[in-house]
């Protein structure tokens, strides 16, 4: 047996794994790709062990150990993935951006602070903040790259707007199907609207929030929601709102609320229903 054959096979498998790791965005698919890379290692090890006639069987033993390590990693990894899914309702790596470095990290630290009444400001702040991060980035992405070409087209028919008398209008991001499990929206950043956003920081009754949920940030009470710390500046937020406005085809969408994380089980289902109703109607 020429050892080149297994070696080349191993190199090919490894490269395929590399591609998978880089190209996939579903965490579980990334895991699979890593498994491919580990298998490439294994075949190398076994082939070399056989070739060298290692009396200590270092290669094959390491292979066994790598298999076990892979299994252990996978166990823990899937547990983590499930935990993420529990908290974030997504396993897309691209969307796990709460901790990511903002595009304008040196923000004005107290930008939102001045806009809300003092005693409740912190709540409002967290609400605004948690509402903003991922949605913002995605909106920004779309606006800047436009690569998700279908976004605007799919978004418009499913738009839902509350009656015009409301200070806030809801809009669900259904641009991409997988994204609909997150209700997007943004607490209004100007003063009075922030006021409307903040009182409902507790968990709203699932049904009751059908109309106002998108703006009232249903998951502020969640342990996760309050801790989001991506920091948008006011300017950034307004820019984002402009983007949103463009997407709603001229409609003046003033606020979009999003449950950034963990929205799914608590507030999201009503919201989605609401949104879909609105979309159809």
């Amino acid at each position: 047996m020429h050892i080149v054959y297994p070696s080349v096979l191993s190199a090919v498998l490894f490269s395929i794994g590399v591609y998978g790791v880089l190209a996939r965005r579903n965490t579980i698919l990334v895991l699979m790709s890593v498994e491919l890379m580990l298998n490439a290692v294994n075949i190398n090890l076994v082939a070399f062990d056989v070739w060298l006639g290692d009396r200590l069987h270092g290669g094959q033993v390491l292979t066994l150990f790598v298999i076990v390590i892979a299994a252990a990693e996978l166990g823990v990894g899937l547990a983590i993935v499930l935990a993420v899914f529990r908290n974030r309702a997504t396993v897309d790596i691209d969307r796990l951006r709460d901790l990511a470095e903002g595009p304008d990290e040196p923000y004005a630290p107290t930008a939102p602070a001045s806009e809300a009444p003092a005693p409740r400001r912190e709540l409002a702040e967290t609400a605004v903040r948690s509402a903003n991060s991922p949605a913002a980035q995605r909106a920004g992405d779309r606006a800047s790259t436009g690569s998700r070409g279908s976004a605007g087209a799919v978004a418009s028919p499913t738009e839902a707007t509350a009656p015009p008398t409301d200070t806030v209008e809801a809009r669900a991001e259904t641009a991409e199907p997988a994204r609909t499990d997150q209700v997007e929206g943004q607490a209004e950043t100007a003063g009075p609207e922030a006021g409307t956003a903040e009182p409902v920081t507790g968990q709203p009754p699932p049904g009751a929030s059908a109309t106002e949920a998108p703006t009232t940030e249903p998951t502020v009470g969640e342990p996760t929601a309050g801790e989001t710390t991506t920091e948008p500046t006011v300017r950034e937020k307004t820019a984002r709102e402009e983007t949103a406005g463009e997407e709603t085809a001229g409609e003046k969408t003033r606020a979009t609320g999003q449950s950034a994380d963990g929205g799914e089980r608590v507030g999201e289902q009503p919201d989605t229903r609401h949104v879909r109703r609105g979309g159809k109607g």
């Binding site: 490269s15 590399v18 880089l22 190209a23 996939r24 579903n26 897309d92």
Partner: peptide, 21 residues
């Protein structure tokens, strides 16, 4: 079928993978 399994940098990934290979 899920359309969003791949991230946008597929081309880059392919280039990197081909180079690695």
């Amino acid at each position: 079928r899920s359309p969003d399994l791949d991230s946008r940098n597929r081309v880059v990934a392919a280039i990197v993978a081909l180079a690695t290979a």
